[in-house]
Simulated assay, not measured.
Amino acid sequence: MTATEELKLGINVGYWQRDPDDQTETVLAAERLGYDSVFTAEAYGSDAFTTLTWYAARTSTIKLGTAVVQISARTPVATAMHALTLDALSGGRVILGLGVSGPQVVEGWYGVPFPQPLARTREYLDIVRQVWRREAPVTSPGPHYPLPYPGGTGLGKPLRSIAHPVRPDIPVYLGAEGPKNIAMTAELAAGWLPLFVDPEQIEPLFGASLAGRPEGFEIAATVTTIVTDDLAGALELAKIPLAFYIGGMGAKDRNFHLDLIGRLGYAEEAARVQELFLSGRRNEAIKAVPDELADSISLLGPIERIKERVALWRDSPVTTLLIAGVRDEPTLRAIRDAVHG
């Protein structure tokens, strides 16, 4: 697995949670500074497409990505419609990031079944691409998203999109954490959206899964970034989302984020974080996240230290750093100069 020749920069503005959480100025600053992309997110609150459209209307060159749209939130055709419409309105700038989420959200929030997530993703992606390519009316034998629907009135018929996409091959990235899901991503998608990834461990942990990826395959890693002279304080802040994902973003016995942290070599520590978080001792859970873990998957501290640590990412197969947590233009400029200077 080879290192990245030219590491690109993007920003991940995450979820919209409350007013005023408009990051237009951040996005505009990133565009002025030559950042390659901006990504939005969704969980069980705001959606990714609305905020992305808001930023699309105010920008002209920066790529527009979702990290990630949850496949259980919409039928494949609905997602294809969202993406092709925004891609057309933005002049062909969309990157569709898709992910399966987890059983708590899928079954508790969206009210649809979670089992067989990999098979669901394959079927979903096939339908999405049929919509964009318009080669024939869209059909699917199922079993997860059969088209036409085999029950109901019996009047359903295959249809072709009445809209002509600007691009019939909108790039699709998949959010994946497990080896099988990452291997499927390398097979089917244009890119991978890893979360909580240590650049030094990508090859030993995921090299086999990524071995079959095509030429030009993108790896866009979201990286919590805090530029400050107070490294200890930055570590504490970086631990907050880690504790939340390890402890609260998944069921006790089925949490993909906890599993990932275990693969990184912190299984016992992650189990302790989850135990504290689920018992309501959230501050203790945050403190229980190992400093080494938080530091390895983030960019923290003075800008000179960040510049040194960027070398680890440049020596990895990651192609884009999605900077998360930075909102002001001077800091975005300093990060850009540290990466590309």
Score class of each variant (00 low, 15 high):
T2Q: 09
A3D: 04
T4M: 03
K8S: 12
Y15I: 12
D21L: 14
Q23S: 10
T24N: 14
T24C: 12
E25P: 02
T26W: 10
T26Y: 05
V27L: 05
F39M: 06
T40P: 00
A43G: 06
G45D: 11
T50S: 10
T51D: 02
T51G: 11
T51K: 09
T53D: 04
T59V: 13
G65E: 09
A67N: 11
R74C: 04
T75P: 00
H82M: 05
L86T: 00
D87F: 01
S90W: 07
G91N: 08
E107V: 06
P115T: 11
P115A: 10
W132S: 01
A136N: 09
A136C: 06
P137C: 05
P137G: 10
P141W: 02
P141G: 03
G142D: 12
L147V: 03
P148I: 09
L155T: 15
L159S: 01
R160P: 02
P171T: 08
Y173N: 13
A176H: 13
E177G: 15
E177C: 12
K180E: 15
K180H: 15
N181W: 06
A183P: 10
M184F: 15
A186H: 12
E187A: 12
P194E: 01
D198N: 09
D198Y: 13
I202P: 00
E203G: 07
P204Q: 07
G207H: 12
G207S: 05
G212V: 11
G212C: 11
E215W: 10
I219A: 05
A221F: 11
T222Q: 08
T225E: 14
T228Q: 06
A232G: 07
L235E: 08
I240D: 10
P241W: 10
P241L: 12
I246Y: 08
I246L: 13
G250F: 05
F256E: 05
H257P: 00
L260K: 11
L278R: 15
V289S: 03
E292D: 14
D295H: 13
S296K: 04
S296V: 08
R309H: 09
L312A: 14
V318T: 12
I323Q: 02
A324G: 00
A324P: 02
G325T: 05
D328H: 04
P330H: 04
R336H: 13
V339F: 14
